[in-house]
Amino acid sequence: MKKIFPNGMWPVMLTPLEDNGNVDYLALEELINWYIEEGASGLFAVCQSSEMFYLSIDERKELTHFIKKISNGRVPVISSGHVSYSLRDQIHELNMIAEAGADAVILLSNRLATANESDEILIERLKQIMNELPENIPLGFYECPYPYKRVLSTKIVEFCVESGRFYFLKDTCCNIEEIKKKLEIMKGSNMKLYNANTSTLLESMKYGAAGYSGVMANFHPALYAWLLENWEKEPEKATYLQDVLTPCSFIELKNYPLSAKKYLAEEIGLSVKARTRKNIADYISETELSELRQIKELSDRAMEFISR
């Protein structure tokens, strides 16, 4: 019997970098511990927030291994990182992630078929991948927005559920009707849906979503952890918190992940440097800094309110 992953808040992890661009493992250890202290139920390592498209396969494997080691069984660690175009290369990458000790290997929906290719083609390639990964490794899907977003159809979700090998879906469709359809198919199976979209989060929980796995867990994860744990017990506070979190989430559209690293350094006090490989320049404007300060102030007020 494979492990059923816990409900709750699953941060999409950042990759701290040193000034020379190398991975900063001291800052990463601090970051891992912060996520867990803030209430993370699990960690999504090596994803788009991790700048996986700018990391070598050796770096992706080492990150997975290190995060698994430092988490030390406190929470499960899932990981992706198959960024190649060739299916053969993707299978190699996914096996390396499995070897690194990930509790689940997460597939990117847009890697298995181009935008104009059918679900049938995607499923055939998915079968090839599944045949060449260890059968005891739980699998998941991530509807990664880059280089294009491929939302899983009901047909693909049905295939995943029927296979019995899928346990996790990071859903980015941002559409409650589509989420409801997926949840209906997943009902009673091992597969769980973790919503990446803040504005539909509370409503999706009412229909059976397992939790949140999105960008804003890099800003105020404790608020998401509280919402996911208490939305049924304290519905009025949950509604208030949802109304606060949604406008705050618009910051993810601006200069991310640099903005999140700057926020963690300046507003939280972590040793994460404002360095990225993704951004052309590691520059945050005064206006953006002001916005980050205001998010911290609003987050503190929200935490004070829900703690009464």
Rank of each mutant, 00 (worst) to 15 (best):
M1I: 08
P257H: 07
I176Q: 14
Y256A: 06
E184S: 09
G101Q: 09
F141Y: 04
L126Q: 09
V151I: 15
N218A: 13
T200D: 14
F159S: 14
Y256C: 01
L258Y: 00
G211Y: 07
V83P: 06
N197A: 15
W226E: 00
E286I: 11
V272C: 13
V12Y: 13
G42S: 12
N72H: 13
G42H: 10
E29D: 11
Q294F: 04
S213L: 03
L253M: 11
I4F: 12
P134Q: 08
E177T: 09
I280G: 01
K237H: 01
S189C: 11
S271N: 06
S109C: 14
F53S: 13
D89G: 02
V46Y: 04
C144W: 07
P145F: 04
L289Y: 08
S50C: 12
S109N: 05
N255G: 07
E51T: 13
Y142R: 05
G188Y: 01
P235M: 13
V46E: 11
E143V: 04
G101R: 15
L202M: 07
N131E: 12
K278R: 06
V157L: 10
R165Q: 09
Q48P: 01
I123Q: 09
E236V: 09
L245I: 08
L223D: 00
E178R: 12
E37W: 02
C173P: 00
S290A: 07
L292P: 00
G81D: 03
V157T: 14
M191D: 06
S213G: 06
S71E: 05
G101F: 07
S199M: 07
I129C: 13
E203F: 09
M52H: 03
S49N: 06
E291F: 01
I97S: 02
E162Y: 05
G211Q: 06
L227H: 11
G81F: 07
K180H: 11
K170G: 05
K68A: 03
N255D: 03
I121R: 01
S80T: 06
E232M: 15
N136W: 07
F305L: 10
V77H: 01
D19P: 13
E184C: 02
N279M: 08
I57G: 04
M303D: 08
L43I: 10
N116M: 13
S259M: 11
Y240T: 07
S80C: 10
N197I: 13
I156A: 07
A196E: 03
Y142P: 01
I156D: 08
T239H: 09
A45L: 12
V83T: 11
L201V: 06
S271T: 10
F141V: 13
L228C: 08
W10E: 15
A265F: 04
W226F: 11
Q48K: 11
F53I: 06
L264Y: 03
A45I: 11
L258K: 00
Y35N: 14
S84P: 04
Q242R: 02
I295P: 00
L28K: 00
N279R: 02
Y85D: 05
M1D: 08
F166M: 14
S285D: 02
Y146N: 03
Y256W: 03
K170M: 02
M130G: 14
E59K: 02
R125D: 03
L122R: 05
R275G: 01
N175D: 10
R74A: 10
A265P: 00
M205P: 01
Y35P: 06
N22W: 02
V23I: 14
